[in-house]
Amino acid sequence: MPTAYEYPAPTPLGYFAALVGDDDALPLFEAATSIAQDEYPDLDVQQVLGDVDQMLARVRRRCAADAGPLQRLRTLNQFFFRDMGFGGNVNNYYDPDNSFLNAVLRTRRGIPITLAVLWLELAQGLGLKAKGVNFPGHFMVKVNLPNGQVVIDPFTGQSLSREDLSERLEPYKRRNGLVDDFDVPVGLYLQAATPRDILARLLRNLKEIHRTQEDWLRLIAVLDRLLILLPDAWIEYRDRGLAWAEMGDVRLAVADLETYVEHADDALDRETISHRLQELRRAPN
Rank of each mutant, 00 (worst) to 15 (best):
I111C: 09
R251G: 14
A192D: 15
I235W: 15
L115G: 05
L257D: 03
Y15N: 15
L223M: 07
T33K: 05
R225Y: 10
W234G: 05
D197W: 06
Y94N: 11
H138C: 09
L199K: 03
L188M: 14
L49M: 13
R60H: 04
D269V: 05
D256F: 07
S34D: 02
D265Q: 15
A193I: 03
V222R: 02
L28Q: 03
A65T: 11
R282F: 05
D215S: 10
P185M: 03
D42N: 09
A57R: 10
R218D: 13
D249S: 11
P284V: 03
D239Q: 09
Y237T: 09
P41C: 06
A283Q: 15
L73K: 00
D23Y: 07
L19H: 05
V150H: 05
G177Y: 02
G14V: 03
S274T: 14
L128F: 10
E246K: 12
D95T: 10
Y172V: 05
L206I: 06
A65V: 11
L199R: 00
P10R: 02
S161V: 10
K173Q: 11
Q191C: 13
V250L: 11
I273D: 10
L202P: 08
R276Q: 12
K129C: 10
L101G: 01
N144L: 15
L49C: 12
I209D: 06
A130L: 02
D97W: 07
I273A: 10
L190D: 07
Y5W: 15
L169I: 11
P231I: 06
L227C: 03
D66M: 11
L118Y: 09
L203M: 04
P231T: 06
S99K: 09
G177Q: 06
T107A: 12
G50R: 04
N205R: 05
L230G: 08
T194L: 11
L203E: 09
R108E: 01
E236F: 14
P154G: 00
D239R: 04
I113Y: 03
D249L: 06
A4S: 12
D83K: 00
D180E: 15
D180I: 12
L227A: 04
S34V: 03
D53M: 08
L49P: 03
N147M: 13
L223C: 10
D53R: 13
D232L: 12
S161M: 09
L115C: 08
G248P: 08
R251T: 14
A31P: 02
G87L: 01
Q54P: 04
L128S: 06
P154S: 01
A267Q: 07
Y237A: 15
Y40Q: 15
D24L: 14
E258A: 09
D256Q: 09
S166E: 15
I111R: 05
R162F: 11
K129N: 14
A255E: 14
A31T: 02
E236R: 13
D181N: 14
V133Q: 05
F139T: 07
T259F: 10
R238C: 01
A233H: 08
A243C: 08
M84V: 00
A65H: 03
E279P: 04
D232P: 05
H210L: 01
I198D: 13
